[in-house]
């Protein structure tokens, strides 16, 4: 049983690792790369939004910090993007400490709005400060030289996805994960079993912010051009939430399923979605909230429970 549990993960990462050998098409490879980045973002958001139940709609702040760090440190001190990524992760963690210790004191809609406000402050600063070049944006260095720079970046992103996935698997089964779920359900009850909600939420946010910042840095390295409206837009925060919710919040596979479905759907409908992607995401969000709050994974789970329930009762 316990070995079979790892089977899907082995297959999934096996497929991703061998991708360049069975998927030759450069365009399709690029889509897979996008799936990987979105999966990392969804997984990271899931720690805070799913397990801890804190609806952050300001996660793009950490993405932007990661992306801007790569570009800024390169421009100012000629740092290579790896060093820039590291700096971005550290800065994102510091920002998370500050933002988290302020916003986690608030509950419900106040928390949500304060996360948006924090992210918007960053966006407006990037838009208006001179050293970020305002709306023009910045050039970011690539992580690898050509040829095959994209493929190498893809292989740099895979370990990050694996790390994020492993972190979720651990969270799902560990004391930390149980504590987060307890906080999500009811902070008063959580405190009654000795949990300090502020500390646990902050831990989740730190893990999450570090992952998001690293993904932001990779994004900058691949697209090599960033601006306030691409790496600090509020839409991106909503998208992270949508990925996790669509797949299934507080589940191990939810964000990955969400990233695959959302990216593939957006790509398949691309000809129609040229100008309608905002509408498409909005519609999806409304449908998920109304009809599938447990996400796609919950459908599979229900099936499974229905199949196994009679046996479980007999036992």
């Amino acid at each position: 049983m316990s070995r079979a549990r790892f089977l899907p993960a082995v297959v999934f990462f096996g497929l991703l690792l061998t991708l360049p050998w069975w998927l030759r098409d450069a365009y399709l490879q690029q889509i897979v790369f996008r799936v990987v980045i979105f999966a990392i973002l969804g997984i990271a958001w899931n720690l805070v939004g799913g397990y801890a139940g804190q609806l952050s709609l300001g996660h793009v702040a950490y993405f932007g910090i990661g992306a801007y760090s790569v570009a800024l440190f390169h421009e100012t001190w000629d740092w290579n993007p790896w060093l820039g990524t590291l700096a971005g992760v550290v800065l994102a963690c510091l920002a998370a400490l500050l933002i988290g210790s302020l916003t986690f004191r608030l509950r419900g809609p106040y928390f949500v709005l304060s996360t948006i406000a924090a992210a918007e402050i960053l966006r407006l600063l990037a838009l208006n400060l001179s050293f970020t070049h305002g709306a023009i944006g910045m050039i970011a260095p690539g992580f690898f030289e050509e040829p095959n720079g994209d493929r190498k970046t893809y292989y740099a992103a895979l370990p990050l996805l694996f790390l994020a996935f492993a972190l979720t698997v651990w969270t799902h089964r560990s004391r930390f994960g149980y504590y987060l779920r307890a906080i999500r359900e009811n902070e008063d009850t959580a405190m009654a079993v000795g949990i300090n909600p502020a500390v646990e939420k902050l831990k989740a946010l730190l893990f999450s912010a570090a992952l998001v910042a690293a993904a932001g840095a990779l994004y900058a390295g691949v697209f090599q051009f960033i601006g306030p409206d691409s790496v600090l837009a509020i839409d991106m925060s909503v998208q992270m939430a949508l990925i996790a919710m669509l797949g299934g919040a507080a589940t191990v596979w939810g964000p990955i399923v969400g990233a695959v479905v959302l990216t593939v759907a957006a790509e398949a409908l691309k000809t129609y979605l040229e100008r309608a992607h905002t509408f498409f995401y909005g519609l999806l969000l409304v449908l998920v909230v109304l009809f599938l709050p447990g996400g796609l994974v919950s459908i599979a789970k229900q099936r499974w429970f229905r199949r196994t329930a009679p046996r479980a009762q007999a036992a």
Binding site: Y178, R181, D188, M191, A192
Partner: peptide
Amino acid sequence: PYQTTRLGIGRTFQIVKPLPSLTVRENVML
């Protein structure tokens, strides 16, 4: 509250609040 719990003061609530998505054992493990 979490500090008093750590000192050894446990409590129950008037309105019972188990975590519905966890099993009974998991609730106690909390």
